[in-house]
């Protein structure tokens, strides 16, 4: 049950995208998220779709896994589509009842938005699929390091995130263990009403809190024993270094955004 949650959904692999510098992946994903909202025509959106397909191909992530990531966003897509269908009234009216109207324009816009959201999710989840959480925070620390000028504790924040990410699997394992132990004593966590279920989690939550604090103390001591004193003067074992593939990724991204912007002038907007 608890294993079903996709956390830090890293999918091991050796593809170009896996090997890419996490900084570039972060920046590219950020640009991509904005770029998805540039096209205003189906032609532009088609380019986004092609780009996403190209990226999936580069990542060597099986289509099945990608499809799985759709699942949690289906309700969001449905809701936005419904709202779009009923709020947009243009073109010919197909159906009308009380205050609800369905028009061709509405359907068009709903479809457009749905595809856009799908591209957004798939494109950005490719980053989490191909980057280990530690590489990701490492990349974040570097990307945000200019903020140090404004006295933002970038290193400490990154370290906190690394630790948090590092302990998610441990805590899940721990939760699983405690749940099993309480179930072995007859705890019933799968039936009953909401309040009953919340109550049923007390035997799991209390031991979990206690052990989290214990772990935090232990970790703090262990870090101090190894002379950890924050980011100042700290060197890294794995130096991030830009490679040919990273420069190509930047180039591909630049061309992609350029084409999208150009499409704005060439093709008339759909909406």
């Amino acid at each position: 049950m608890i294993n079903g949650i996709a956390l830090g959904q890293y999918f091991p692999g050796q593809s170009v995208m896996h090997k890419m510098d996490p900084r570039i992946k972060l920046i590219n994903t950020f640009i991509f998220i904005i770029a998805v909202f540039i096209p205003q025509s189906w032609a532009g959106l088609l380019m986004v779709i092609l780009f996403v397909l190209f990226s999936i191909n580069c990542s060597k992530i099986p289509g099945k896994t990608i499809l799985k990531s759709f699942k949690p966003i289906i309700p969001i897509i449905l809701i936005t589509s419904l709202i779009n269908v009923f709020y947009t009234q243009s073109g010919t009216i197909l159906w009308k009842w009380w205050i609800f109207t369905i028009s061709t324009g509405g359907l068009n816009k709903a479809g457009f938005m749905a595809v856009r959201i799908l591209c957004l999710i798939v494109g950005s989840s490719l980053m989490t699929y191909t980057t280990t959480p530690t590489a990701l925070t490492d990349g974040m620390e570097r990307v945000f390091s200019p903020l140090k000028v404004f006295h933002v504790h970038v290193h400490e924040l990154a370290m906190m995130m690394t630790i948090a990410l590092r302990f998610i699997p441990t805590l899940i394992e721990e939760t699983d263990k405690i749940m099993s132990a309480q179930k072995a004593r007859g705890a019933d966590m799968e039936s009953g009403g909401l309040s009953q279920r919340i109550k049923a989690f007390i035997p799991v939550l209390i031991p979990l809190f206690v052990s989290s604090f214990r772990r935090a103390y232990e970790l703090a001591t262990a870090m101090e024993c190894r002379c950890y004193h924050g980011g100042e003067g700290r060197t890294r074992m794995k130096q991030l270094k830009m490679q040919g593939r990273d420069y190509s990724a930047i180039a591909v991204m630049t061309v992609f955004v350029g084409l999208l912007i150009a499409s704005l002038f060439v093709v008339p907007p759909v909406l």
Binding site: K177, I178, S180, A181, Q182, K183, A184, R185, G186, A187, I202, P203, I206, P207, V210, S211
Partner: peptide, 28 residues
Amino acid sequence: IRFKVGMVFQYPEYQLFEETVYKDIAFG
């Protein structure tokens, strides 16, 4: 079945949660 086949996990002391020892033993 779980009442008939009782199971004590590794480091079972980490599953204690009640206010008193009595209540904890009584949980099962």
